[in-house]
Design a binder for these strands. Sequence first.
DNA 1: CAATAACGTTTCATGTCTAAAATATTCTGT
DNA 2: ACAGAATATTTTAGACATGAAACGTTATTG
Lengths: 175, 175
Amino acid sequence: MDATVKRKARSPKSTRPPPLQPVEPVHDSDGAHLELRIWLRLLACATRIEKALNARLRKEFNTTLARFDLLAQLARRPEGASMSVVSDLLMVSNGAITALVQKLEADGLIHREVDTADRRTFRLRLSQDGAREFDRMARRHEEWVIALIGELSPVAQSDLLQHLTLLKRRLDKHA
Amino acid sequence: MDATVKRKARSPKSTRPPPLQPVEPVHDSDGAHLELRIWLRLLACATRIEKALNARLRKEFNTTLARFDLLAQLARRPEGASMSVVSDLLMVSNGAITALVQKLEADGLIHREVDTADRRTFRLRLSQDGAREFDRMARRHEEWVIALIGELSPVAQSDLLQHLTLLKRRLDKHA
DNA sequence: CAATAACGTTTCATGTCTAAAATATTCTGT
DNA sequence: ACAGAATATTTTAGACATGAAACGTTATTG
C-alpha cells in the first residue's frame, strides 16, 4: 500500500554548468512529481486513520469498519435498502455484501425481508438492537476521528476539506 | 470503507434570536464536524485512486498494488532488505509479507537468500527480471497518478501536499 | 406467449490483510 | 555455558475484497 517510485539519480555528464535551480519545484526532499508525492501522503494518512479506527472498533465493540459502515448506511435510511443499493453506497462488490449481511443478521443487528413487489430483492433494515448498538459506536467513532484530525487548525482543516472535495470531483469525472 | 455518521438535527429551542452565522463554518451541505467530513473525503479519494491503479496494474501487467509496492521498496534498496524491514516499510503485518514474497519469488521477480550473519533473517533482493519489470510498471504507474491528480492546479497540489504532510506528522505523533 | 434480455443475489476461487500461536535463531546475564 | 529473553519468520484461522459463473425472478418484445 505504499506505491513508492524510485527516481533515477541524475548522472552528471554534461560539460555545461548545471542550472542554478532544478527544473521541478523542490519543496521536499525528493525529486518526484508532486502528484506522486500527494498520492503517497494521501494513502499514508488514509491507512493510518483506517487502521486506528478499525483497531478501536475491534477493541471496544468487537466489530469492524465494514460492519460499522453498513450499519451507518442503514441508520440513515429508516425505509431500508436493498443489497445492491448498499453495495453501491459502500462502493463494494455485491459478493462482499452478502457475507457481511449474513453475519450482521445472525448477530441480530439487521433484518432482511423479501421485497413484496420484487421477489429478487431483499430489504435490509436496522433492528432495534442494531440501532442502539450503532448509536453507541457512532458516538465513539466521532470522538476518535475528531481526536485524530482535530489537531489541525480550523483553517488548515477547512483548506484541506476544500482541496479534497475538489480532488474527489475530478476523480469522479475521470471515471 | 465509508464510515459515514449521521448528525443530529439541531432542535431550535432558545428564545434568544439565533446568531447570524452558524457556529461551525458551513461550506458544505451537512452539519457534521469538519473532522468527520475530512475523513470521509480523504477515504473516498484514496479508495478511488487505489482502485483505479489496481485495475490498471492488473490489466496491463497482471499484477497488483501490493506486489508493485513491494518491488518498489526493493528497487530503491540494491542492498536488499529483510522481511521485517519490508513489512515495516509497507506498514503491513509480517504474515502478509510471507505470502507476497513466496509468490514474487516463484514468479522470479525477487531473490530470497539466507543472511550469512543471522540465519533467522532473509535478504530480499530484486532479480534482473524483477528490476526490468518494475521499471516498466513504474513508468506507467507514474503516468497514471499524474493523470489522476494532475488536473488540480499546481498551487492546489502544493497546498494539498503541505496539508497532508502536516496531517501525517500529527497522526504519527498520535501513535 | 414464449424466447430472451436484464436484474438481484449467491457462490466460488483467489488475493490480501490481521492477530496470535508455533518455530527457529541469536542475544544476555549470571 | 546455559536458561531465558528477544528477534525473525511461518503458520493458522478469520475477515473482507474482487470478478466471474450460476441461478431465480422480472421485463421486454417479435
